[in-house]
Nucleic acid binder design. Structure first.
Lengths: 145, 145
DNA sequence: ATATTTGCAGACAAAATACTCTTAATTCTT
DNA sequence: AAGAATTAAGAGTATTTTGTCTGCAAATAT
């Protein structure tokens, strides 16, 4: 079940890394992160750029530059992040890929799938990056292979 | 949420189409299906070939040839079909794509994601193609755009 | 038998995704 | 003011996925 794309995985990992740090206000050097997480620097840069454009991160250039949370990690839900990384329709897509699938013109999987999908959405909507980050730190969970 | 690939979508749609037919024993002409479902003939052929190789379908060549269920649609679970289409590890993959993620070396999302994943697996495991097909037929649900 | 219809198999092409490289813009340091 | 460090932006490359084409193999019909 590849729920998210490779760039989605990378973005999520990077932000979990940031959120697992004690200091939530801190700016993170992208090069350091790409080294630690073993993700291509330029590729990660691009992914984080998107998150900056979408108002989840802020960035500064120059020496000691980097990226940091714009909102606090408590206010960023997993759902919001995933939507930013994978597209706004992430939680609305038809399992069979049929355009315009919905209550009016449901596919055979629609009702069934909507239940599962909404469940996931609720879960992701009520989970903050801070939660996941704190857990990561306290339990020393790994973000690398 | 792109849970399944394009070829997975096509395979699922084709088999739902077959399962929604009254006659479960029938053989279906691939060309007719590709026309009705608006899927590339050769591409669909390839997808169904895989299902034939995996023992879900059987096929016959020649005039009036086609593909039909090997087991009855009652015995084919959605989980089995999706595994055949998307790979056996479909319900086991790490959300962050980390190899070897598991109880011993969990990623930050592991426990969380495992819950959601297993839920989906249970749902898919207890849903048969026949169920979905019957529903499709009785409610005239659409399998095309 | 021969021709026709169908699925099988593999090569090829196009599109999407993943990744790399180069240059520009910004910030800091001295 | 000059230079170094860092992110932004965009072009370019590689890999994977998706889709097409051509010929072969099997079954049927005549």
């Amino acid at each position: 079940m590849r729920v998210i794309s490779k760039s989605g995985e990378y973005g999520l990992r990077a932000l979990l890394h940031m959120a697992s740090n004690q200091d939530n206000e801190r700016f993170f050097n992208i090069r350091e992160m790409s080294d630690e997480l073993d993700i291509s620097f330029h590729f990660l840069t691009k992914i984080l750029q998107v998150l900056t454009q979408k108002g989840i991160l802020q960035s500064y250039r120059g020496p000691n530059g980097g990226v940091g949370f714009l909102k606090s990690a408590e206010e960023i839900t997993l759902a919001e992040l995933v939507r930013a990384l994978e597209g706004d329709d992430f939680f609305d897509k038809c399992l069979l890929g049929l355009p315009g699938c919905g209550e009016r013109q449901p596919c055979p999987m629609h009702a069934y799938w909507m239940g599962i999908r909404n469940n996931l959405k609720d879960e992701f909507e009520t989970t903050s990056l801070a939660d996941l980050g704190k857990n990561t730190r306290l339990q020393h969970l790994r973000l690398i292979a």
